[in-house]
Amino acid sequence: MLIKLLGCGIIMLCTAKIGFDKAGRFTRRVGEIRELQTALAALKGEIGFARTPMPEALIKTGQRLKTAVAGIFSASGEALRTCDITAGTAWETGIDASKKDLALKEDDIYIIRSFGELLGGGDVAGQLENIDLAMARLSVSEGEAIEDERKHARLYRTLGIIGGIVLAVIFI
């Protein structure tokens, strides 16, 4: 009986963790979108005011960030600094290197990939417009992410706990 109870406890903990992890992705997605917006605002300053060359601008922006979003900026900046590639290729490298750690949805990734297509190619005005466009699109994504979090985060947490209880009852 003791073993059964211990097993049920482990099952409940596992299902609850799965539920909380799933719910956490919704919360992390909101955080990452917000950090992307902050990062783009910082990049805007580096390009618009400081005229910092792109490799250093991306690396400096990455250093200011806390979430997995930092990896996109750091990896792409480092790729641009060390390899003779275009900013678009470096940006793709950064996204691919960080994607597994991100909670962003494909739609969000599509926005930042599109942003990379025009990165580094034009004058200040063109670069700032590209940043503004990406920020506007991320703002829409942020609204959707908040709504998704509101709808689904609690659902997954509850499902995780209830699922564990149901499985435990079946086993007992």
Partner: peptide, 13 residues
């Protein structure tokens, strides 16, 4: 041009 300007046309304008 991008590689020569280090993807930073704005910095070399």
């Amino acid at each position: 041009m991008q590689i020569i300007s280090r993807a930073s046309v704005y910095a070399y304008i």
